[in-house]
Write a protein that binds this DNA or RNA. Structure first.
Lengths: 217, 217
DNA sequence: GAAGCCCCTGAACGGCCATTCACATTGGCC
DNA sequence: GGCCAATGTGAATGGCCGTTCAGGGGCTTC
């Protein structure tokens, strides 16, 4: 009757065959799956290593600590996300409307396609030690700032007419709102549904353009 | 060098004076704060009880388990949220535009004002055992359905003209998107900022109305 | 065939976990 | 004053935790 740990639905991993990939990758992969299914604090080093056919001690030949392992996983998806957002915007030409649409579409497609990666990056980030969390936050701010810049341009050029509160805009809040919205598709979108990733992305881009009051192109 | 637990930024609680309120409430309050600051799995029963000036064993005179304690906390805020949403809508008259605005405003004001409650309810829910999570999910679905119903009415009556994908609506997806957006104000809104809770609520209501293509009233 | 390196093993360390239980201590009521 | 229920204590139970480290294989390179 003494259940020692909260379990988040899924049971610990069975023993596995030794993963054939290079050990660092095998460990990363196993940890990723475990963190996604059960959450960082209840996944033990032993669980992770068992899942790729090694023993506890071997982890420390490849990572300094469990914490570093988590950071490694989150940082790599976060970095790729930032790159993709930047790329989408620079490839979209000069019109703020096109930039906004491209940004949202890229962001949403990614969050539909790499749901699990997004989930881990967003849900487990709070377990990172203070030093290791800093660069992830920086990247998030950078992404937000891309969006804020687009909104600003749109307003300056008169192609966006966003809602005001007492005569003032709050473009930062709007950017946050949009990002929250787009980020959390990953929490409920399933590929089995009636709409594809691209259709979702289009829907979200439409909503974003409407929200900022984009003038017809 | 053997840091035993991930810490989520904040240190365990110092010993506290015995809380003067009735014990159940004192425990609930202490647990709530601890869960909010450090997260369910790393908060120990000893931590909670120490924070309200009791010892571990006493918890079990008031709750069956740590799990039940968490459920108790989440269920009470979730219930109140559901009630407030319902109330806002029924008090808003007949026009779907008014209903939508009222819903969003109530939801956002609450999530700005009770940020921490929202945070705990959303972040820690995944630690609840399968049996205990069911009624929370039911309540969430109920809230979503209120929103879907409003959107549906608006479309039927021709006062909403939401974006389509390949000629079809996806009102459920739109409802989810709006809820995600509104829920996560609680993650970054701070009362020190330039805008009040009510101003935020108005901003979000405006965005929602624009997103669904509400015709001018 | 020796040396050096990389990688893995599994025991060991010091400590903490949720829950139970025999045992006080209270305070109201006869 | 005696009884009872409610409530609190803190030791005990049977574990598991992240990390370290001595020991040992199996490579390559001389």
């Amino acid at each position: 009757m003494s259940k020692r740990k909260p379990v988040r639905v899924v049971e610990p991993p069975v023993v596995a065959e030794r993963d054939q990939r290079p050990p660092v990758e095998a460990i990363r992969a196993a940890a990723f799956t475990q963190f996604a299914e059960r959450g960082y604090p209840v996944v033990t080093v032993r669980d992770i290593m068992k899942a790729c056919g090694l023993t506890q001690g071997a982890l420390y030949n490849h990572f300094k600590s469990k914490d570093e392992l988590l950071h490694d996983i989150i940082a790599s998806t976060q970095g790729e996300l930032e790159r993709q957002c930047q790329q989408a915007v620079t490839g979209a030409g000069d019109d703020p409307r096109a930039k906004l649409a491209a940004f949202v579409r890229a962001y949403v497609v990614r969050h539909c396609r790499l749901r699990v990666e997004a989930l881990v990056a967003n849900r487990e980030i709070s377990w990172l030690g203070a030093e290791r969390v800093a660069d992830i936050r920086r990247s998030r701010r950078a992404i937000r700032d891309i969006l804020v810049t687009i909104l600003n341009e749109g307003v300056q050029r008169g192609v966006f007419d966003p809602p005001q509160i007492d005569g003032r805009h709050d473009l930062k809040a709007m950017a946050m709102a949009m990002l929250d919205q787009c980020t959390h598709v990953s929490m409920w979108y399933g590929p089995g549904g009636a709409f594809s990733e691209e259709q979702m992305a289009k829907l979200y881009a439409d909503m974003a353009l409407r929200a900022v009051g984009a003038k017809p192109q």
